[in-house]
Simulated assay, not measured.
Amino acid sequence: MKNALHITRLRSLLNLVENNHTKQLTSQEVSETTFYSYRNINRIFRSVFHKSIGRYIKELLLQEAARQLVYTDLPITDIAFELNYSDLQAFNKAFKREFGISPSKFRQQDQENMDAWIKAKLPEEIKQLDDLNYEIKSLPATRILYLTHYGAYQAPEIEDCWDALIEYADQQQLLQEDTKYLGEMLDDEEITKDENCRYNAAITLSPDAEVEVTGFFATKEIASGQYACFMHKGDYSKMDTLYEQIYLHWIVKNEFEVGNLPILEFYLSDEETTPKEELLTEIYIPII
């Protein structure tokens, strides 16, 4: 899509939907945000994402429902009503259509799978878990410039996303000595289909930085929060092993509950001058 106006208005629509998908958005709100009729912006949205606006909102809602089933003890009825389903039957039907299983069985299956995974992993991983260090950190609210990649978190296209972000930030003279580079994982790969996962390649901005936002580039403020922070040393492609150890460590030895904020990865090394085996990444897992 090369029409700059379409891109800017589509970016506004994505911001509206992703920040308000748990509310019941009206066609008027969509039209007022994009300056297009709902019918026309829906056509543009479908041509880019191969689904309607309504379908995208429903996917986000059901992914949030699945996340709450996995990471909280909230009753299923409460989850359904919180996500604007008028009755439990409608929620159960929509959830089963999306995931092929009822909400209650989804929650039960996840716990059974986790128990089996722990049992299989624990004997071989226990020494590594004893050596796994982390810190509890509170991050302040942070303003960022970002570009979103839609797809699997390990997809090579993420590099293109980063190249575009750095070039754009450099053109606007936003790269400073204290600029931090981070990735924001908005979805859970165990719940969300690979093609629907959202990854924000981002740089931090000073509070008074003036940014001209065009196209799919956007700014926002990451909310303050508490995190368990782990350090990874080595190739980015090998971080999955540490993620496994993190969640196993929590389950076996701690009583942390995963928070609602996205997982963050802060990239501390210069890839141009640092060997892959020496790359340092801080992984921030939100906790409550």
Rank of each mutant, 00 (worst) to 15 (best):
K276S: 03
E82M: 11
Y153M: 00
G234C: 12
M239K: 10
V30D: 04
A209S: 08
K23D: 10
M231H: 04
N254F: 03
F95I: 15
P103Y: 05
A169I: 12
E29V: 10
P103I: 04
A164Y: 01
S31R: 07
Y267K: 04
K119Q: 10
Y36S: 13
E159Q: 14
A164W: 00
L242I: 06
E177D: 09
C229V: 12
E210M: 09
Q109T: 07
N196I: 03
Q171K: 15
E195M: 12
N260A: 15
S12H: 11
N3W: 05
E190C: 06
E177N: 13
N84Q: 11
M231G: 06
N113D: 06
C197L: 12
E167N: 14
K93T: 13
L264M: 07
A80F: 03
D87M: 07
G225L: 01
E157G: 04
A90W: 11
K233F: 01
K220V: 10
D87Q: 05
N3D: 12
F99Y: 01
T77A: 15
L25I: 06
L5A: 01
G183D: 03
G215Y: 03
D73V: 09
E135A: 10
L280R: 07
Y153K: 06
T34S: 11
V48E: 13
P207F: 01
D187T: 09
L25R: 02
R9Q: 09
S104Q: 12
K119C: 12
A218F: 02
Y199G: 01
G234V: 12
L165F: 15
K193S: 10
Q28G: 01
A80E: 09
I287L: 02
I7D: 04
E255F: 00
L205D: 06
D178L: 09
E159N: 03
D240E: 14
E255A: 12
M231F: 09
E135I: 04
I263M: 10
L74V: 13
Y181A: 00
E184R: 06
W250D: 13
L132K: 00
Q89H: 14
L122N: 04
Y168G: 00
Q171N: 15
K105G: 05
E212D: 07
G259F: 02
S86E: 01
